[in-house]
């Protein structure tokens, strides 16, 4: 009986731990949004702003193709942040293209938290 209680507590602790680590910080996401990353191949430095712009309620433009990107702000585009697979796909691609590496779980949580407030 005692053992199972301890196990249950341990399990609960393990579950809540990642949540604590991922305490999303919208302010950090906002700061990260316009942070510029120099590119090793000689192309101009990139940030999220390069394609999405500073104002998330406005459409952006794909830097290479010029294709219009619908606004990211859920306040004007309610479809945003509703599809988990889509969020993960774009965070993976866009972090690799912009930062030159995958984002950490914390960075991703911060970006999502920031976008949510827009």
């Amino acid at each position: 009986m005692k053992t199972s209680l301890v196990l249950a507590l341990a399990a609960a602790g393990a579950l809540s731990l990642p949540a604590t680590l991922l305490a999303a910080d919208a302010a950090a996401g906002k700061a990260g949004w316009s942070k510029e990353y120099p590119q090793s191949d000689g192309s101009p430095a990139r940030s999220c702003v390069t394609c999405h712009g500073k104002d998330l309620t406005q459409p952006g433009r794909q830097a290479n193709t010029g294709k219009v990107i619908e606004p990211l702000a859920p306040s004007v585009n309610p479809k945003r942040l509703t599809d988990q697979a889509k969020i993960e796909k774009w965070l993976l691609r866009n972090c690799k293209w912009t930062l030159g590496r995958e984002c950490t779980a914390t960075e991703k949580a911060d970006f999502v938290a920031y976008i949510k407030t827009q």
Binding site: S43, N64, A85, K89, L92, R93, N94, K96, W97
Partner: peptide
């Protein structure tokens, strides 16, 4: 796809 004409276009 990881360097798709200069873009990152990795797909599942």
């Amino acid at each position: 796809l990881g360097d798709h004409y200069g873009d990152e276009a990795t797909l599942a």
